[in-house]
Design a protein around this nucleic acid. Structure first.
Lengths: 221, 221
DNA sequence: AGCGCAGTTTAGTCATAGCTAATTCCGATC
DNA sequence: GATCGGAATTAGCTATGACTAAACTGCGCT
């Protein structure tokens, strides 16, 4: 039996998604973290946290923050499934580029019926990853964690394939695409400057130095 | 330069669509007609009518009703364009049936960006009609009126092709499909009972009597 | 242990969009 | 031309979700 974020407001779904993302990043979901992520004032975040707690979707400890309940997590995953399936669809079937799909999926995700979700899923052959390399929760909302290594974990001389890139920032995605850093692409780490300095990589496009911080956000396999 | 219903609330867009539909049907757009169409109380309709008038989207005469302004009509057509393009897409590319597309398009129409609209339009080869046979406003929002004849206008013995069926009621659409009354299908009128009685038609599926009222809602060419 | 500040929450508003109950208007009838 | 009834509007509430300003907590630091 499937939980139904469908009966939630769009705003509530967006908050759940944000809370899930923060938990996933290992960040404590405080009011300010949530407010920041949602581009909203702290009181607004507090208010929504209370509402979600009232719906049994999060556990809330005043002054401490919130944590998703099982139900809350299911709702978040449902929305994420919609988002990532749509990204996959938009990229594969309508030719949207990596930097375009996120925003479009963001718009459409709340308007996708279960029917259509299933139809799209089948049409695409039950894909497991979105175009950025993020895993798509399956129809039972199972999500494989796959917290693998990143570009910044590789030793000099190591080669790997990019498995995941950050998904939200179109400018960043265009930049990475220019450097040849897209999912599936081959990379070799040439140098890792000490003290958290830049990482120099070779891709099909050539050699490029990128910040350690950015390298840490690019997963490899 | 394109008007931007995008900046309107979803509710406002839905009201504009309803007002457009009523005008199209030749109905005076009174508060009660609008309230009825929107499944909303009369005071709610009054309130929205005022809001739309304030935005310059309708001309409102208290106690008289509303009429779309040019801007209002453009916004309504923009929404209708989204709706019908999506219907066409869902039918052609995802295999949804005639009775399913309306509800899905209803959900998605407000979440469709101009970008994606253009992409879908191109993908489909700039279609002119949705799967029910309703005309799709073009990118400049021109809509061909084509107020043609209906099944109930045909004389006994006349043959024609169904050009348009009502789009909102899934049950009705399934019924019509069973009778072979779908867009493009060949029909021949066998009998027209007097005094507004039923019309008997032959389709590929056989002979069927349908009410005059229903026949009047099926356009032919 | 106490003080202070950063972070949280409360208090009080606003806008949208819905509702019911009460009132007002318009036109049709007498 | 007054009246009556139905349609339309006003008045007053509710919920969501945002905001600012003010008050409160708790933790770290002395």
């Amino acid at each position: 039996m499937r939980t139904r974020p469908r009966e939630l407001t769009v705003a509530a779904q967006d908050y759940l998604k944000a809370i899930h993302a923060l938990e996933d990043e290992g960040v404590r979901v405080t009011t300010s973290a949530l407010a920041e992520r949602m581009s909203v004032s702290a009181p607004s975040a507090t208010a929504m946290a209370k509402r979600l707690a009232g719906l049994g979707l999060v556990e809330r400890t005043p002054y401490r923050g919130v944590a998703l309940t099982e139900t809350g997590r299911a709702c978040a995953l449902e929305v994420i499934r919609h988002h990532r399936l749509l990204e996959r669809y938009l990229a594969d079937r309508l030719g949207l580029t990596l930097d375009e799909v996120h925003a479009e999926a963001e718009l459409l995700e709340h308007a996708l019926s279960e029917e259509l979700e299933a139809r799209i899923d089948a049409e695409l052959g039950y894909p497991t990853h979105d175009p950025h390399g993020d895993p798509i929760p399956d129809a039972e909302l199972k999500l494989d964690a796959e917290r693998g290594r990143t570009l910044s974990d590789l030793d000099e001389g190591e080669r790997a394939a990019v498995s995941r890139v950050p998904d939200g920032d179109p400018g960043l995605l265009r930049y990475l695409a220019e450097l040849g850093l897209v999912p599936e692409a081959e990379v070799e780490v040439l140098r890792r400057a000490p003290y958290g300095g830049p990482v120099t990589v070779r891709t099909v496009v050539g050699e490029h130095a990128i910040s350690r911080e950015l390298a840490g956000r690019i997963a490899v396999a």
